[in-house]
């Protein structure tokens, strides 16, 4: 029993120290308040995404003021709409061109799983191509649902460890 307690104390000292955890907190605080979206609207869900970016349900309140169409400058890829087999390599390329750290929101039934369209030409869910962080069901989802998904991504950023993503000591401390 005492041995375990001693081990726990030693683990606490060998984990990430005060400077790096405060720095991580600082970075997460900054990243949480300015997610720049890449509005990848291909179909009807794009209209609801535009509604979320417009004056009715303002997405710029969360700092997403600058929807950039260049993947190098965007953080969050909001994929809204049906993806056909022709569009598949393009979506993969855009995702790979984005700079780390990046997150993906899959908006609407067609993006999450093919939706109604179980055909040869529609990709049955974009998570067969790119890793997805948040799924939003709906056809189309309300703009508030998109804002909820964005808030979920922001909370996920808040728990992120930019420095210790791969260090195994952190798994011991979690």
């Amino acid at each position: 029993m005492e041995n375990e307690n001693n081990n726990k104390k030693i683990e606490a000292y060998t984990g990430p120290g005060w400077v790096l955890t405060t720095l991580e907190m600082f970075m997460n605080w900054g990243r949480q308040r300015s997610p720049w979206p890449l509005p990848y609207g291909t179909a009807c869900c794009g209209i609801e995404m535009m509604a979320a970016l417009a004056a009715g349900y303002d997405m710029a309140r969360f700092g997403a003021e600058r929807p950039s169409f260049s993947p190098r400058q965007a953080d969050v890829l909001i994929e809204a709409g049906t993806i056909t087999k022709k569009m598949e390599p393009i979506l993969k390329r855009i995702y790979e061109q984005m700079a780390e750290p990046k997150w993906v929101i899959s908006m609407g039934a067609c993006a999450c799983s093919g939706g109604v369209f179980r055909t040869y030409s529609t990709v049955q869910g974009i998570d067969t191509i790119i890793p997805v962080d948040v799924y939003i069901p709906g056809c189309p989802p309300r703009p508030e649902a998109l804002l909820q998904a964005l808030i979920m991504i922001l909370n996920k950023i808040g728990k992120d460890h930019p420095y210790y993503r791969f260090k195994s000591e952190l798994e011991g401390n979690l």
Partner: peptide, 12 residues
């Protein structure tokens, strides 16, 4: 209900 966003497919 319209707040349906989740992190994984199983939760949906």
């Amino acid at each position: 209900g319209y707040e349906l966003s989740r992190f994984t497919k199983e939760e949906c």
